[in-house]
């Protein structure tokens, strides 16, 4: 029962605002620590790959970024759906704060993927199932952000974005499997990530640590962005006016 009360207490933007401000630096620090550790493992501890040489080390960025891009879309859709169902203002703000970070990781995954593709496949881009669905995921993020940006009324923007995010979540698996099917039909089994030589334990550890770094980074920037959105949307409320007065 007590947990319940706390939950709803922090779902109000006014109480969440200072909480987010307190938590953000801690998550930022965690992100820096994990990121540095992940890079250290990736560059110095992990062995050189006998097939791909040093170029493979980009997977310590690429793979965690790809994981995060999909994970963040799910988290975003979760918040959006919660906002639609329970009509809480903060949920919608969380969803819109997550979108740019998700799009950023999607872009990083695509970018590093194509850089890695050059030494591996001899070309910057192949219509590989993963790359293609990652590209479509990027379009979905852009669509979500563009829709929210185009609607002036915050409540409508949240709710319309939520419908889109949920439709997107249903579609992502369909898109992935149709692209994969199409891809195998066209190319036959070319080089695929899953068929890479069995991974050394240190390599896997590096990617996991890096993924945690990215995750904490996402939390930190999302909290900061939520704070901005809260101030912007609640600018006419009393507590924001008082808060602004304290600043002067």
């Amino acid at each position: 029962m007590k947990g319940n009360i706390n939950w709803f207490k922090y779902s109000s933007p006014q109480t969440f605002y200072p909480l987010a401000g307190t938590l953000a630096p801690w998550f930022g620090a965690l992100a820096a620590v994990f990121g540095a550790a992940g890079l250290y493992i990736g560059f110095f501890v992990a062995p050189t790959d006998y097939q791909q040489g040093e170029a493979y080390r980009i997977i310590f960025i690429h793979v965690p970024a790809a994981w995060m891009s999909m994970f963040l879309y799910l988290v975003m859709a979760f918040w959006a759906g919660a906002g639609l169902m329970f009509n809480t203002r903060l949920s919608g703000m969380m969803a819109s704060a997550l979108a740019p970070t998700g799009a950023l990781f999607t872009f990083i995954a695509l970018w590093t993927g194509s850089l890695w593709g050059k030494p591996m496949w001899g070309t910057y881009w192949v219509w590989d199932a993963r790359l293609t669905s990652e590209l479509i995921l990027l379009f979905l993020y852009f669509g979500f952000m563009a829709l929210q940006a185009a609607i002036d009324d915050a409540r409508r923007a949240d709710r319309a974005g939520a419908v889109l995010a949920l439709v997107g979540v249903v579609n992502v698996p369909v898109i992935y499997f149709s692209v994969q099917w199409w891809n195998t039909l066209h190319q036959g089994a070319s080089v695929s990530l899953t068929k890479a030589p069995t991974m050394a334990a240190t390599m896997f550890a590096g990617m996991i640590v890096m993924a945690f770094g990215f995750w904490f980074y996402s939390i930190a920037v999302t909290l900061l962005r939520v704070r901005c959105i809260v101030l912007e949307r609640e600018r006419n409320s009393e507590w924001v006016t008082e808060y602004a007065r304290d600043f002067r």
């Binding site: 479509i136 379009f139 979905l140 852009f142 669509g143 563009a146 829709l147 185009a150 889109l164 439709v167 997107g168 579609n171 369909v174 898109i175 149709s178 692209v179 099917w181 199409w182």
Partner: peptide
């Protein structure tokens, strides 16, 4: 905007 929202969702239909 409509194109941006809808075209990615059309991909499976196009492919199949």
């Amino acid at each position: 905007l409509l194109a941006l929202l809808v075209l990615p969702l059309y991909v499976p239909v196009l492919i199949i």
